[in-house]
Design a protein around this nucleic acid. Structure first.
Lengths: 228, 228
DNA sequence: TCTTTTATCGAACACCGTGTGTGATAAAAA
DNA sequence: TTTTTATCACACACGGTGTTCGATAAAAGA
């Protein structure tokens, strides 16, 4: 259980380099940042950098992985708390916005419009697994919805990603709860249409407790548009 | 009216360089392509390249601008034809998919997943102007829809862009007509929800003749969700 | 056809960022 | 204190960039 003590110098150097990279991304955009810039800003020797990371990308990735772990630990805590008392169902999208808001400085550098292609793809894959991953086997259904399932999932993930980046790039003008509501309003009717079902009972208070995906899988569990 | 005759050598060199870039993007992805690669592939002198373009980006941009002009000329021809006989209303999204499909080799290099950050932003701006641009002044309405107008427009444009790139990256498994239908199915209910209106009359045959945006502006012309 | 114009070539150049390797040094851990 | 090791400064080869220049060849113009 005990964490192995890490050399103070290591954590210090890593922290300096991460801070430098984040500041530089906000200033000139990720693509424009050079390893040289990071060395100058962090005041760290050249060989030291390469002792820790293979290149720029790996440094950025490790920043993201750190946040990712933080998020997942936090979610598991909430999940555990759910077992104890009767807590409301987990809304993963809302939690995601909250977590992003809490670390908005880092996420703005990592996911904002000044970030690069590489992290965009990484984020897409992460969100895909988060939203769609647990329900992939359910997708192998034989009914043919009006919109192909792959298109719907792609659309859903892209929407969330673009919504998050918009939020960050515009200095988070609304609270996470409002963003979650917006995402629900934008995506839920789309899901209905994609699966060819009527929408009445979806935009209701009953739904607001769950996640979009909870409802998504509900669609599929019922065999997809059973009343059509 | 007469086009100024361009030196044969110029068009030849430009063509060679464009072809080289497109082939290389498909092979290794835009970011990975170097000017050196282009020179080798096109069999063109170094100084010749820089006599035409400042850098990689400008070369790619000029490819896109060429396609853009082609599309716009074609659309104006259709628009002109509409005056003569009674032709169906212009569906800009359908036309966009048709045009993309006709030049799918080029668009796959330019807009596909192997393309770069820079062209993505350019494409976003272009689609934004195409879809939202003509209706910007209509957006300055005083009613407060459930989802902020900027978010809805951003979501709409991102959706179309991600749908187009998905189509290209997956070797266009459906015809443009189907893609237009998919986009309509995905975006129309979202627009309703965003503007807080009931959806009944939207997914109807009457609508299928027009463009999403035609309907979008219809929302706004009526003052946004008047029956709520 | 002959002349003029000019696009291309190729070679050289300085510049900058990258990634690797070295032994010396200082700071942490034991 | 002794041992371990992370950091440092410096040097190096490599590769891509963007510029310059005179020579050459291929167009355009008469």
């Amino acid at each position: 259980m005990k964490e192995k003590k890490e050399d103070r110098r290591i954590s210090r150097t890593r922290r300096l380099m991460h801070e430098a990279l984040m500041a530089l991304i906000v200033e000139k955009g990720y693509e424009e940042v050079t390893v040289q810039d990071i060395l100058d800003r962090a005041d760290v020797g050249r060989s030291t950098f390469y002792a820790h990371y293979r290149d720029k990308d790996e440094l950025l990735l490790s920043s993201f992985e750190h946040l990712r772990t933080l998020f997942e630990v936090q979610q598991q805590a909430i999940f555990a708390a759910r077992r104890t008392g009767r807590a409301p169902e987990l809304n993963i999208v809302l939690e995601l916005f909250r977590h992003t808001g809490e670390h908005h400085r880092l996420y703005k550098a990592i996911a904002g419009k000044r970030s690069g292609e590489m992290i965009r793809k990484y984020l897409y894959r992460y969100l895909y697994n988060l939203l769609i991953g647990p329900h992939t086997e359910m997708m192998k259904q034989r009914t043919t919805p009006p919109v192909p399932v792959e298109v719907t999932t792609h659309h859903l993930v892209s929407s969330l990603l673009s919504l998050i980046t918009w939020w960050l790039d515009n200095n988070m003008p609304y609270p996470p709860e409002k963003m979650d509501e917006i995402f629900r309003r934008l995506s839920t009717p789309t899901l209905e249409a994609a699966f060819g079902r009527r929408a009445e009972e979806i935009i209701t208070s009953e739904y607001s407790a769950g996640s979009v995906i909870a409802f998504y899988s509900q669609f599929i569990d019922r065999g997809c548009c059973p009343d059509k």
